[in-house]
Amino acid sequence: MRNAGQNESDVIFILLGFSDYPEIEIPLFLIFLVIYMITVVGNLGMIVIIRINPKLHSPMYFFLSHLSFLDFCYSSVVTPKLLQILVVEDRTITFAPCIAQYSFAVTCVVTESFLLSAMAYDRFVAICNPLLYIIVMSQKRCILMVTAVYTWGIIISIIFTSSLLILSFSGTNIINNFSCEYSAILSVSVSDKHVTETIFFIFANLNTLVTLTIVLTSYIFIFITVLKIKSASGRYKAFSTCASHLTGVTIFFGTLLFLYCVPSSKGSWLLIRVTTVFYTIVIPMLNPLIYNLRNKDVKETIKKLTEVPTRWHSG
């Protein structure tokens, strides 16, 4: 493929990041480094805890382990490059790595959005049809659901990436962001963007419509069922089983919708960067805390793991 008469290897993107605020780059590097370390430990730790604790071998935690995996992957796709451009003068990234970063990021985002929908359906079955829960959410069905969401995420990533590959770029392209994000890549193209924008509009809106419909429908039935419970303690117990997921869904979709509602104008680029930071770096760190902050089984497992060295030392 050729871009504006050049080979792919000749096309270079310059990630501006936060270069227009040089005085805060080092503090941002330290903050993002700490956040990334917490994200890696938190999400990989959750996967380990879920695997080793038999009490957590349920559909909800099966989905949660994959959510942690996706958050780890998504953060790892974006954050290392961000940390690099904050401390080195060379902010360039060639065509292939830029497109690869975008492709992997899309896979993670789309897969996570449908995984959150699957988790909403899981909560719907658990609260509205508890007697059939084991049958409906069987291990086989859970595996099929997870396989389906990963497959769809990869398909959408291929479609979106292919739509960018038909565009042409000049030799050097300045991206006013810290990652190879869709609107930023699109803004530096020198060719007609109509086909690419149409493809993105159709599939992005389709994904959003399907996932939000599943989530909202599930929670409408959940709320109706919870309101029918006579005892206050029963209502609280039923609602608490989905409170963490509802919080995570609200933050995830709320930030995503806000990000793509912001117009790509010069005055909005700072807002886009800040929102992208929250979406790509902060949310993957928050998810382990949101879903497990009040979980007794998780706390007990962590406590046992942290007590092992102490017992060995005392022995």
Score class of each variant (00 low, 15 high):
Asn7Met: 09
Thr301His: 06
Ile127Asp: 09
Leu206Trp: 04
Ala4His: 05
Glu181Ile: 09
Pro309Cys: 07
Leu212Gln: 02
Pro80Glu: 00
Ser187Leu: 07
Thr275Arg: 10
Asp90Thr: 13
Ser113Lys: 01
Arg235Trp: 04
Phe258Tyr: 15
Phe252Arg: 03
Phe124Ser: 01
Ser187Pro: 03
Leu82Tyr: 01
Phe62Ala: 15
Val11Leu: 01
Ser191Thr: 06
Arg51Ala: 12
Ile143Ser: 08
Met60Cys: 13
Cys128Asp: 08
Ile214Glu: 00
Asn7Ile: 08
Phe253Leu: 05
Leu30Tyr: 14
Ile222Phe: 05
Ser65Gln: 09
Ser19Trp: 07
Leu131Gln: 08
Ala100Pro: 00
Leu270Phe: 09
Leu86Val: 03
Thr107Val: 12
Tyr150Glu: 09
Lys81Ala: 04
Arg294Lys: 13
His313Met: 11
Asn292Thr: 14
Val195Ile: 14
Gly254Ile: 10
Leu209Thr: 05
Arg311His: 10
Leu116Asn: 01
Ile99Asp: 07
Phe178Met: 06
Gln84Lys: 15
Leu167Glu: 01
Val146Gln: 03
Ser218Glu: 04
Ser9Gln: 09
Thr79Tyr: 00
Leu286Trp: 06
Ser179Tyr: 10
Leu16Ala: 15
Leu164Asp: 00
Ile99His: 02
Ile85His: 06
Asp297Ile: 09
Phe13Thr: 03
Ile199Ser: 08
Glu181Gly: 02
Tyr150Ala: 08
Ile185His: 08
Asn292Leu: 04
Ser233His: 11
Thr151Pro: 00
Thr79Ile: 07
Leu270His: 12
Phe18Gly: 04
Ser58Trp: 06
Thr225Arg: 15
Cys108Phe: 10
Ser103Tyr: 02
Tyr121Val: 01
Leu257Met: 11
Thr151Phe: 14
Val190Thr: 15
Met145Leu: 14
Ile166Pro: 03
Ile47Met: 15
Ile35Asn: 02
Lys81Asn: 12
